[in-house]
């Protein structure tokens, strides 16, 4: 399956739950609504044409207008790659956990929860991962984050 065939297949068989974004990259990037995430993830993994069985990478980003959660997945048997992302607002951001679908998401979701404050629903093991145990200074990866000893790079 080529990239064009993959894009066409996903657009035809996911009832509009994955919308193609124009990124100018070779691999397709889709957007998914937060409510559809778990169902779409399961179908991407279990569809016999796709079999996306490998979560390469996932993470969140703060664009100053919204939060985005990006998932990069690959199929080891069908030799496919694709990305999809979902968009969240700053008010109580929350996503479903995809750890039941791809166990690799476990630590990524813990990190995301800790650094961005994105709540991950139904995560099996939501303990702090990276920050000190007594951390109480909020979510440091948000762009508007600040702390008493945080020094911003001066404008040059």
């Amino acid at each position: 399956m080529t990239q064009q065939e993959l894009t066409a297949y996903i657009q035809s068989s996911f009832e509009g739950k994955l919308t193609l974004l124009d990124t100018g990259r070779a691999e397709p990037m889709f957007e998914v609504r937060p409510d559809d995430l778990l169902e779409v993830a399961r179908r991407l993994r279990d569809d016999l044409q796709l079999k996306f069985d490998y979560l390469c990478n996932m993470g969140a980003s703060d664009t100053r207008e919204r939060l985005e959660v990006v998932y990069s997945i690959a199929s080891t048997t069908r030799r496919l790659r694709m990305d999809f992302k979902l968009v969240l607002g700053y008010e109580n951001p929350a996503v479903e956990s995809v750890t039941p679908v791809w166990p690799a998401a476990n630590w990524y979701e813990r990190e995301m929860n800790e650094l961005f404050g994105i709540e991950v629903k139904d995560h099996p093991d939501m303990r702090p991962l990276l920050l000190p145990e007594d951390w109480d200074q909020g979510y440091p990866m948000l762009k508007n984050w600040d702390a008493p000893d945080f020094v911003r790079m001066p404008e040059l």
Binding site: L130, L131, Q137, P140, W145, A147, D149, F150, V151, R152, M153, P154
Partner: peptide, 10 residues
């Protein structure tokens, strides 16, 4: 890591 770092002791 003096600038823009939340995790490094100064």
């Amino acid at each position: 890591f003096y600038y823009d770092s939340y995790s490094v002791e100064k």
